[in-house]
Design a protein around this nucleic acid. Structure first.
Length: 562
DNA sequence: AAAGAC
DNA sequence: TCTTTGC
DNA sequence: TTTTTGC
DNA sequence: AAAAAC
């Protein structure tokens, strides 16, 4: 066929393009070497605040200026994330080591146990309090006296003495606030008063549950994940969906499952899944998963689909042709004459060529560096723009497969924001940062102020799926290509887009189902009322939840997939 | 929804 | 038209 | 038993 | 594969 000719031609063109961009040294605007703030999540923000009315007032934070260390021992995973989120949002500075902190928050109540984690002499120099100190302080909008929350009786005096004060200007009259919210509680026992998250895991919606990155039943979930992948490889999507739901339900279950009686409240566990869990309880393994793991077809399909552009259908096709390894694949794609016509597409070749690099995980620090570079380019094009790193990074993953950055234009004129994606990508391409564009931006949102209304579910945001490479001058430069997704959202739907691109997948699916059930329609390009298709605009991420009548869930607790 | 291959 | 792409 | 399962 | 009733 003449495909041969076409492919050859395009390959060449690409090689040249790569060579050219590879050598270009970035003209100006070198990123300042990482100021390295804290490894908290979110935004490579340029102008985070000031856009956000509702945030603004509350901001300032009752814990502002307090350096806190939260000891994770004896605190449930979800609980821990909530504490961190609460502390952070209220202005506390979280420390990586107890030494840097003014105050240590711990659920441990005994001296001996605490000493296993923290040097006793150091502890004596600081306030050491129970987790409810954070909660109550937030509730009262003031850093409360540590004496009432001393974690360990031997440290009561030193905790009182070393109790930090918030630098937030507005210290409220502390006096009788006490009475209003709850009557009991100061001076009392060490129970964590958590009616908060008690029955949450029972919900049928992942967007109502707290799903930590790693759950107490992670091994079980991994086993089920293998079976789920196998179903996907065979295009048994409904079956795969059932496994996905079971996995996300189990991920939100707060304790290690030791007996079958515990799982009766977990949704989406029918006969099949129940049987598998039973097997797992006795053998710590699931035979079907073990079997698949060593199955050639399974392994081959998994590896083929790891090539960008190859999905289950194509993977099965290649397998049926007798191919088994990347070498086979390479040979097949490389061979010019296939009587059959397709010796594979251009996209597949590029995908295969880049596969090894793209399969290398990206550490958080490098994700942040990428975020800075994108934001620098963005500020050049349209000063005052905002961006947020979403995806797995924002959910707290230590390593990412790719980087998703959602951005929007400055508050002023919406119209100046035309072709933001195209301009940003072009700028970064010229700087040698972007080497490939896998999916060109649509030419939508021309002179638009509103997101185009979508009739069908995929978001209508302008986006570009690209391949990125750090400049050689970056301290993080490894010469490895990375997947970078850039998403432009008009201002009015910026927060919707951030929620939509933070994930996880099951969290997003259930957000849509939840919204539907509430008579609304959610996707990353907006929330609309189904009755009259009236658009509802959120002014903050929390506002998105509010409009959907959902309780707030931290990004780090949206890990409803494996 | 959009792109690319068929 | 079919497949893949995103969270 | 039939339909739905994210768009 | 599981749950709602579409």
């Amino acid at each position: 066929m003449r495909v041969k000719h076409l492919l050859g031609h395009q390959s060449l063109k690409y090689k040249n393009a790569l060579r050219a961009t590879g050598e270009v040294i970035m003209p100006f605007k070198r990123p300042r070497p990482p100021p390295v703030p804290h490894a908290t999540n979110s935004s490579s923000t340029s102008t985070l605040l000031s856009t956000n009315h509702e945030h603004k007032r509350l901001r300032r934070g009752c814990l502002h200026g307090i350096k806190a260390y939260i000891l994770s021992a004896k605190i449930d995973g979800a609980e821990y994330e909530i504490l961190i989120g609460e502390a952070e949002e209220n202005g506390a500075e979280l420390c990586k080591t107890p030494a840097e902190a003014d105050i240590i928050v711990t659920a441990i109540g005994m001296k001996k146990r605490l000493e296993r984690h923290i040097d006793w002499n150091m502890a004596k120099g600081k306030a050491v309090v129970r987790p409810d100190w954070i909660r109550d302080s937030v509730k009262k909008s003031e850093a409360l006296p540590c004496g009432d929350y001393a974690a360990i009786s031997d440290l009561l005096d030193s905790s009182i003495e070393n109790c930090p004060e918030s630098s937030s200007s507005q210290s409220q009259p502390p006096d009788q606030a006490e009475a209003s919210t709850s009557q009991h509680q100061s001076t009392k026992e060490s129970t964590l008063p958590d009616l908060v998250y008690e029955p949450r895991y029972k919900s049928r919606f992942a967007c109502e549950r707290y799903s930590p990155l790693i759950c107490p039943n992670q091994d079980l979930v991994k086993e089920l994940h293998i079976i789920k992948l196998a179903r996907e490889m065979e295009s048994e999507e409904r079956s795969a969906l059932s496994y996905s739901r079971a996995i996300s339900a189990i991920k939100a279950f707060p304790e290690k499952i030791k007996s079958m009686s515990q799982i009766s409240d977990i949704p989406y566990l029918g006969d099949k899944l129940t049987g598998m869990i039973q097997e797992f309880l006795s053998k710590s393994t699931i035979s079907q998963a073990r079997q698949l793991s060593s199955d050639t077809r399974y392994q081959t399909l998994i590896s083929f689909t790891s090539v960008y552009g190859i999905g289950p259908h194509t993977a099965r096709h290649l397998y049926d042709l007798g191919l088994r390894t990347f070498d086979d694949l390479s040979r097949y794609l490389g061979s010019d004459d296939n009587a059959e016509g397709s010796g594979g597409s251009f996209a597949w070749r590029e995908g295969l060529r880049l596969r090894d690099e793209l399969s290398v995980k990206i550490p958080r620090a490098e994700v942040e560096e990428m975020g800075r570079l994108v934001d620098n380019a963005l500020q050049d094009i349209l000063p005052g723009s905002e961006s947020t790193i979403c995806g797995g990074y924002r959910r707290g993953k230590l390593e990412s497969n790719d980087v998703d950055i959602v951005f929007t234009h400055p508050q002023g004129q919406g119209n100046k924001a035309n072709n933001m994606i195209a301009r940003l990508v072009e700028r970064m391409r010229k700087d040698g940062l972007i080497t490939h564009t896998m999916h060109a931006p649509s030419v939508r949102s021309k002179g638009s102020l509103r997101p185009p209304t979508n009739h069908d579910g995929w978001d209508t945001l302008d986006k570009s799926l690209t391949i990125f490479n750090l400049p050689k001058t970056s301290p993080y430069y490894k010469g490895i290509h990375r997947r970078l997704d850039l998403i432009y959202a008009p201002r009015e739907v910026y927060w919707t887009a951030v929620v939509g691109w933070t994930g996880s997948t099951m969290f997003e699916r259930d957000l849509r189902l939840w919204a539907k059930q509430k008579g609304l329609k959610f996707d990353s390009s907006g929330i609309t009322r189904r009755r009259d298709t009236k658009a509802l605009y959120a002014t903050s991420e929390r506002d998105v939840f509010k409009l959907l009548e959902l309780e707030w869930i931290e990004p780090r607790l949206r890990n409803a997939d494996l």
